[in-house]
Design a protein around this nucleic acid. Structure first.
Lengths: 219, 219
DNA sequence: CAAATTTGTTAGAATGATCTAACTTGTTAC
DNA sequence: GTAACAAGTTAGATCATTCTAACAAATTTG
């Protein structure tokens, strides 16, 4: 069984992997806030456990077993976040830190019960998919608001970034998952987008923000 | 901040301490399933942190700071157990192992919210008191069923042992906290007690069982 | 009370996770 | 295409937590 530290490495590898599933050691080390040698030695040990394929000076790759292990930890994380929001009344900006700890609990019944109580949700409070019990993730491809056309009606469906600061910004603008947005215009100069939605007639969203909002076209 | 290991030592010291608050090293080591030298070195390190008073060959004593620290961990444990039973539908025999992990989570809001959702309970599912936010424990002195007199009407209020096996035994006899028991007789030979309660007219409870049932006299 | 037993201590080693310093390999930019 | 820089590796150390073996102190028992 993976230690909490190993679980964190697996999760980071999963989250950092590019389209080919590759991760560079320095990204991994940076993401986990450890030195390069620390990450290097840990990767060797994850290889011994059969979770990572590693060759000197080559990018890192999770094995299928490693991917499953990682997805199951992410499953616990996302179920927990959803439980905290739906059943305990937390805001979506408060749940990450708590879930970061709860995800390491080894108690299948506990997560099973959360899942049941919520009616088997498939996305977390930030719109990210919850892997199933076998570690399979339904890949959804949403469109960033930044690449939508003026005139379109879209619905906010997920985020590419879930930092507390970003979530608090969205709260301040009353933007939540499900919010329907009419795209009024796009500024050529700074790529900001002007939208209207319930209670907000003329809200300008910077490029930085609109890139991070994933939407589904309604019209 | 205490590591998970240190937290487990503090908790064990708290739970093992006798009327004078003293614990022997061998009890501690046995309770935590570690060797004597391991416990010995950990105790020295807890002393450095100011949580334990330790002198060679003398019994161990928690400092006031250590007592508070321990009580706050036990608070998290017991709040969690109650939450699992009251809000998540677990049986009282299922919650210990889960709470044993959840108690190490550092997230005051999380436990605060559990507490609120349950209306600030003062006992856990096994009748043990939940320490308050300052680590104070309301000491309740219940009577073991084994020392009650035939004829008495009593109510099951707490347990001195909460092992899964004991709890499953109680489940099998439909004995729960709150059950009202009429003591019919006591066998002189083996100190077993015969009781009646709802749906059970003549139930014989061994000495081992009746010692572990704590009751409050109703008449 | 001395012998036997239990309890506690010290020394020394192992493992997991981390670090810094020094070095090597790979990549990028003139 | 080499010089500079970035990325990755190795060596060696530290800290926390654990162990076994050997020994010492305290307690119990005949």
């Amino acid at each position: 069984m993976a230690s909490t530290t190993e679980e964190n490495y697996l999760k980071a590898l999963f989250n950092l992997s590019n389209s080919q599933g590759e991760v560079n050691l320095s990204e991994l080390a940076h993401s986990l806030q450890v030195s390069l040698p620390t990450a290097n030695s840990m990767v060797k040990s994850l290889q011994k456990s059969g979770w990572v394929n590693y060759e000197k000076y080559k990018p890192l790759l999770l094995t299928p077993a490693g991917q499953k292990e990682a997805a199951l930890i992410i499953r616990k994380h996302r179920l927990t976040e959803m439980f905290l929001v739906k059943k305990m009344g937390f805001g979506w900006e408060e749940v990450h830190e708590i879930a970061e700890q709860v995800e390491h609990i080894h108690a299948p019944k506990f997560f099973q019960r959360m899942d049941e109580m919520m009616g088997f949700p498939t996305i977390d409070p930030h719109g990210s998919p919850i892997p199933d019990k076998l570690g399979r993730i339904q890949e959804i491809h949403y469109t960033p608001l930044s690449s939508c056309k003026p005139g379109q009606l879209v619905q906010l469906t997920a985020l590419t970034n879930s930092s507390t600061e970003f979530l608090e910004f969205l709260n301040s603008r009353k933007l939540a998952l499900g919010t329907e947005l009419r795209i009024l215009s796009r500024e050529a100069y700074d790529s900001s987008v002007v939208v209207s939605y319930e209670g907000h007639m003329n809200e300008t969203l910077s490029e930085k923000v609109s890139e991070r909002l994933l939407v589904r076209a309604l019209e």
